[in-house]
Design a protein around this nucleic acid. Structure first.
Length: 113
DNA sequence: GGTCTGACCGGCG
DNA sequence: ACGCCGGCCAGAC
């Protein structure tokens, strides 16, 4: 038996999905969790983002909560970083919330299957 | 090694 | 409409 046999790496799955988010789009923690089959573990997605902080290839700024609110902005370098990155990609943000989130929303089910 | 918390979400009063 | 509560899993103390 191998010592470090990884099981379903939930975090890793989260990272891969997040990496697939197209530029100019955003999704929610719950959507990712639901796509991975554990919609009740939306919190873990957020926690995964925290762990993903060390991995710069993960566009964590494209992940917001179900309201399109930039709840995780305080975990970035500065509280404005998240918004600035989003605006740079063409996403309008008002009062820490994505404008037209419904349109900007990227559904993993729709895009990945 | 038990306990608490967290970048969430849905349900209920 | 608003506020509170439970559930999920992993990491910190």
């Amino acid at each position: 038996m191998r010592k470090k046999e990884k099981k379903h790496n939930f975090f890793n799955d989260v990272y891969e999905v997040v990496r697939l988010i197209p530029k100019g789009r955003a999704t929610s923690y719950g959507a990712i969790a639901a796509y991975l089959g554990t919609k009740m573990s939306a919190r873990m997605v957020g926690w995964a983002m925290n762990a993903a902080h060390s991995d710069k290839t993960i566009p964590a700024h494209r992940v917001v909560n179900r309201n399109g609110l930039l709840t995780g902005r305080f975990h970035f370098k500065t509280p404005k970083t998240m918004q600035q990155k989003l605006e740079k990609e063409g996403i309008r943000v008002k009062k820490d919330q994505i404008v037209n989130f419904k349109e900007v929303f990227w559904d993993p089910f729709q895009s990945l299957g």
